[in-house]
């Protein structure tokens, strides 16, 4: 039990961060507005949580201009994918210890 808990990643221990990672796992990238719509969160909320994930190097941020409007894209890094997969596995084990 102890070492399962170790795999529970504190960086994902928040609904918004969990959501951001989930979206980025199944999409090549997501832009700011897409995340905002999907998660139903405020600008500031998304900004601070993406920053936290970026600090952990779990996501990569690409800023560019589309039709002269600034556009921010988020991409999951290989390290982020690995960490998130481990996190999900740990969650599943906690729920279903027999498997």
């Amino acid at each position: 039990m102890k070492n399962i808990i170790q795999h529970i990643n504190k960086a994902f221990d928040h609904r918004i961060r969990l959501g951001i990672m989930s979206v980025l796992m199944v999409n090549d990238f997501a832009d700011f507005n897409m995340l905002k719509e999907l998660l139903g969160a405020t600008d500031g909320n998304i900004a601070s949580h993406t920053k936290a994930l970026e600090k952990e190097a779990y996501i990569k941020v690409e800023k560019s201009f589309i039709n002269r409007k600034p556009n921010t894209r988020y991409i999951a890094t290989p390290a982020g994918r690995e960490a998130f997969t481990k996190h999900i596995e740990a969650l599943e084990k906690l729920i279903n210890p027999n498997e």
């Binding site: 979206v23 796992m25 199944v26 999409n27 897409m34 999900i88 969650l91 599943e92 906690l94 729920i95």
Partner: peptide
Amino acid sequence: METKNYLQDIAHIKTMMSRSSR
């Protein structure tokens, strides 16, 4: 009570994955 939280987490992950890609 802890377990319930984890269940919610898994459910949240699933909805976010499917809603963002399907």
